[in-house]
Simulated assay, not measured.
Amino acid sequence: MSQTATILVVDDEPQIRKFLRISLVSQGYKVLEAANGAEGLSQAALNRPDLVVLDLGLPDMDGQQVLRELREWSQVPVLVLSVRASEIQKVEALDGGANDYVTKPFGIQEFLARVRALLRLLPAGAAQEPAVSIGPLTIDLALRRVLLDGAEVSLTRKEYAVVAQLARYPGRVITQQQLLKDIWGPTHVDDSHYLRIVVGHVRQKFGDDPTAPRFIVTEPGVGYRLAQG
């Protein structure tokens, strides 16, 4: 990836943001800033950066929560930059979807090297869209909203979870077992009736005819996929 990449820095310390901005801009990167978790998630959804540098000690929510919410709709590389040096914190962040972890205080040359390494993970133009549209249906994974003809569709938690999982891989079949494992848990991989009921309710709310589906397509004996717009 060229050094015109956009990097979002989420940190509540103005001096850290200034230091990182100066260092990154000097290397040719474009830098966005956010002082809290909510602002960081909003910036990520609106601007689709190529890399997120994330502090864990944010004033409005823990950085681990920011990471979890971001990973619900984006695979953008995330570099955690935190004073938390315990192995438990590092493992939690890495298991939660972080790609790398640097503790404060840090050396700027090492930091820049890690940035370059993470940017190589994502080919140019591969940033994900936070919203998926199929005709009149829009699934906004960042805002957790589903709109049909511009009106919000009220879904239960399980209904939204199924729709969101399909929306993360539009056009690709996700097996019944995978959906059941991801949404209901590993002890429910054989409870296909749970999934059929939820999909049926979603189709009713979408006005989607299962015999001629516009949105959710059944692959008999395999699973479901979201039709591509």
Rank of each mutant, 00 (worst) to 15 (best):
218 T>F: 05
104 K>F: 04
62 D>Y: 12
140 D>W: 12
78 V>N: 06
42 S>P: 04
184 W>T: 11
75 Q>N: 11
120 R>N: 03
163 V>K: 04
74 S>L: 03
200 G>H: 11
68 R>F: 14
145 R>D: 10
185 G>V: 14
207 G>L: 00
148 L>C: 13
228 Q>R: 13
66 V>C: 10
130 P>M: 07
104 K>A: 01
173 V>R: 10
181 K>Q: 14
192 S>M: 04
226 L>D: 04
209 D>E: 09
43 Q>M: 11
160 Y>R: 12
136 P>L: 02
137 L>S: 02
166 L>Q: 01
135 G>D: 11
6 T>Y: 09
75 Q>L: 14
146 V>F: 06
132 V>Y: 11
125 G>Q: 08
207 G>C: 00
112 L>A: 05
75 Q>E: 15
180 L>P: 01
172 R>N: 07
12 D>I: 08
213 P>Q: 06
3 Q>H: 11
36 N>F: 07
28 G>S: 00
227 A>V: 06
72 E>F: 09
69 E>Q: 15
140 D>V: 02
175 T>K: 14
130 P>W: 05
150 G>D: 06
94 L>G: 09
61 M>Y: 04
182 D>H: 02
48 R>W: 15
190 D>F: 10
39 E>L: 02
176 Q>M: 14
116 R>V: 08
3 Q>D: 15
167 A>W: 02
67 L>C: 03
199 V>T: 11
130 P>T: 00
41 L>C: 06
97 G>A: 09
12 D>H: 13
199 V>K: 02
197 I>V: 04
33 E>T: 14
1 M>L: 03
215 F>M: 02
93 A>I: 05
145 R>L: 08
64 Q>G: 10
24 L>T: 13
3 Q>W: 02
70 L>I: 09
3 Q>L: 14
64 Q>R: 15
128 Q>N: 14
115 V>A: 08
71 R>L: 00
71 R>P: 13
39 E>F: 10
143 L>P: 00
127 A>Q: 13
169 Y>L: 15
54 L>P: 12
99 N>H: 12
65 Q>M: 04
147 L>M: 12
33 E>C: 07
28 G>L: 00
207 G>W: 08
175 T>S: 14
173 V>T: 12
73 W>F: 10
157 R>W: 02
171 G>Y: 08
114 R>I: 03
92 E>I: 00
135 G>R: 13
4 T>G: 03
87 E>R: 05
62 D>P: 02
212 A>G: 07
64 Q>V: 02
22 I>N: 15
44 A>D: 09
30 K>Y: 12
10 V>T: 01
177 Q>D: 08
221 G>I: 05
167 A>N: 07
28 G>P: 09
24 L>D: 07
92 E>F: 01
229 G>T: 15
190 D>K: 13
45 A>S: 07
102 V>L: 05
115 V>K: 07
152 E>Q: 11
